[in-house]
Every structure is written in C-alpha cells, then in structure tokens.
Computed example of a mutant assay.
Amino acid sequence: MQVLITKKTLSKVKTSFGSHLMLARKRELPALRTERADPDSQVQMPLFVL
C-alpha cells in the first residue's frame, strides 16, 4: 500500500511541477516573440512586387 501511495504522490508532484513550468513558459512567450521579431525584421530583406 505504501508503494502505491508513494507512486500516486510522486505523480501529483510531477504534474504540479509540470504545470508550473508550462505557466512560466506561457508568461515568457510574448517577450521571447518580441525579442525574436526585432532581429528578424533587421535581417530579412523586404520583398518588392513589380
């Protein structure tokens, strides 16, 4: 019984930790996208249609 309780507890801890990491990434994404867009716009040549 103790083994089952330990497995269940470890599963809950992993799930909680994973969800915290996902939320942190969700908060970081807008800043990361902004940082990436700036250099991309400086490097990429504009396309002109004639």
Results as ranks from 00 to 15, higher is better:
residue 48 F to S: 13
residue 5 I to F: 09
residue 29 L to H: 02
residue 5 I to P: 04
residue 8 K to F: 09
residue 49 V to E: 02
residue 44 Q to F: 14
residue 41 S to A: 00
residue 41 S to I: 00
residue 35 E to N: 14
residue 5 I to Y: 02
residue 7 K to P: 00
residue 7 K to F: 09
residue 5 I to R: 04
residue 25 R to E: 07
residue 10 L to V: 02
residue 16 S to A: 06
residue 31 A to N: 05
residue 40 D to A: 15
residue 11 S to M: 10
residue 19 S to H: 05
residue 33 R to I: 03
residue 44 Q to P: 11
residue 7 K to I: 12
residue 7 K to C: 09
residue 1 M to R: 03
residue 3 V to T: 12
residue 17 F to L: 08
residue 10 L to M: 12
residue 22 M to W: 13
residue 10 L to R: 07
residue 24 A to H: 05
residue 34 T to Q: 12
residue 43 V to D: 14
residue 46 P to D: 02
residue 16 S to M: 11
residue 35 E to S: 14
residue 8 K to T: 05
residue 36 R to P: 10
residue 28 E to G: 11
residue 1 M to Y: 05
residue 7 K to D: 10
residue 46 P to G: 01
residue 30 P to Q: 08
residue 15 T to Q: 10
residue 38 D to M: 08
residue 22 M to S: 06
residue 47 L to T: 10
residue 9 T to R: 08
residue 14 K to D: 01
residue 5 I to G: 10
residue 42 Q to F: 14
residue 50 L to W: 15
residue 10 L to Y: 04
residue 44 Q to V: 15
residue 30 P to K: 00
residue 25 R to Q: 01
residue 47 L to H: 14
residue 17 F to G: 01
residue 26 K to C: 04
residue 41 S to P: 08
residue 19 S to I: 11
residue 35 E to H: 13
residue 43 V to I: 11
residue 48 F to N: 11
residue 34 T to N: 14
residue 38 D to C: 08
residue 35 E to W: 14
residue 14 K to E: 00
residue 5 I to L: 11
residue 27 R to P: 08
residue 29 L to D: 10
residue 36 R to I: 02
residue 47 L to Y: 04
residue 35 E to D: 12
residue 16 S to K: 07
residue 32 L to R: 04
residue 29 L to S: 06
residue 44 Q to H: 13
residue 1 M to G: 11
residue 14 K to S: 01
residue 2 Q to S: 05
residue 10 L to P: 01
residue 27 R to W: 07
residue 43 V to K: 12
residue 40 D to T: 12
residue 4 L to Q: 02
residue 40 D to Q: 15
residue 21 L to G: 01
residue 14 K to C: 01
residue 25 R to H: 00
residue 14 K to N: 04
residue 47 L to I: 14
residue 15 T to N: 05
residue 16 S to N: 00
residue 4 L to D: 05
residue 12 K to I: 03
residue 28 E to D: 13
residue 26 K to F: 06
residue 24 A to K: 02
residue 21 L to Q: 08
residue 21 L to M: 08
residue 33 R to S: 10
residue 17 F to V: 03
residue 37 A to E: 13
residue 10 L to S: 03
residue 7 K to Q: 13
